[in-house]
Design a protein around this nucleic acid. Structure first.
Length: 272
DNA sequence: AGCCAGGAAGTCC
DNA sequence: GGACTTCATGGC
């Protein structure tokens, strides 16, 4: 099916580092596996072609791409005097915060610490093909691998994960899997849903290998807590260099996570 | 061009 | 404050 969508750019999202499992098939053409479903999509300007039917798009993928959130309205609240932020949005205004699966995000950002995006991606891909379920694409030729549930990872050891390039993070994942298997993940999800942002972060930080920064990312990308503002090395530099007098947190209260993504992506890819 | 060093969406002890 | 895995990246 086809659809016109504003404030969405596949390449920007794919390179923004919020998800590590999209696969680039060609320019502006990606395959996406999420919640066990498979989708291929192509973009030409604001026109998109999706490999699924209208009903599946409306009931599932539309939510995944966060199309119910009005990014145009958010952009209109931006301080016109803030040259850096405006440049960032000019550069990466097609970024949205996807509604990804909690577990996949937890693993992705557990691996992300002290790491490069290309390497995170290859580790995530290896986890899928090693432990995920092999499935027919259905609406396209070939097969894909779903991202493995904790139960599907429960026989793997730290040494197995290390072999996939996780390095010293392998033991973190082994411990996390043992906590999240056999209903642990579903229990955690229920617990977290009931908590406010600060308590979510606090709760996540009790897990071995998850510190403040990773917890913030999990809340933002895995639970759509769009007011979380993860401060990593890139953001820290931006704050020092461009917001030495203080960042306007209160002005963007409620959408700080979205603002963070614009800034992060611009620093990562745009600003030279 | 090819090599080398500093750094990478940090956290643990 | 130091150690931790490995390697894509940029500088020379």
């Amino acid at each position: 099916m086809e659809q016109i969508i504003e404030h969405l750019n596949l390449q920007q999202i794919a390179d923004s580092g919020q998800c590590f499992t999209w696969e680039c098939l060609a320019e502006n053409n990606y395959s996406i596996c999420a919640y066990g479903r498979y989708l291929e999509t192509k973009q030409q300007g604001n026109k998109f072609i999706f490999s699924c039917g209208k009903q599946e798009f409306d009931t599932f993928w539309s939510g995944y791409f966060d199309l119910d959130t009005d990014y145009g309205a958010i952009k209109r609240t931006i301080d016109t005097q803030d040259a850096y932020l405006n440049a960032a949005i000019q550069f990466g205004g097609g970024i949205r915060i996807l509604r990804q699966e909690l577990w996949e995000v937890m693993v992705g950002f557990l691996i992300s610490q002290n790491n490069h995006i290309p390497r995170i991606r290859s580790s995530m891909q290896a986890l899928r093909t090693q432990y995920g379920q092999r499935r027919e694409k259905g609406n396209a030729a070939g097969v894909y691998y779903s991202f493995p549930h904790p139960d599907e990872l429960s026989d793997a050891t730290a040494a197995d994960f290390s072999a996939l390039g996780l390095g010293y993070r392998a033991k973190y994942l082994e411990t996390l899997v043992s906590r999240m298997r056999r209903g642990g993940l579903e229990e955690l999800k229920q617990t977290l849903e009931a908590l406010d942002d600060a308590a979510v972060i606090q709760q996540l930080c009790t897990l071995y290998g998850i510190g403040k920064k990773v917890a913030e990312c999990i809340a933002l990308f895995g639970m759509h807590r769009t007011n979380r503002f993860p401060i990593d090395t890139h953001i820290r530099r931006i704050l020092e260099r461009h917001y030495a007098a203080g960042f306007p947190y209160t002005r963007y209260d409620g959408v700080l996570g979205i603002i963070q993504q614009y800034l992060f992506y611009y620093h990562l890819k745009g600003e030279k």
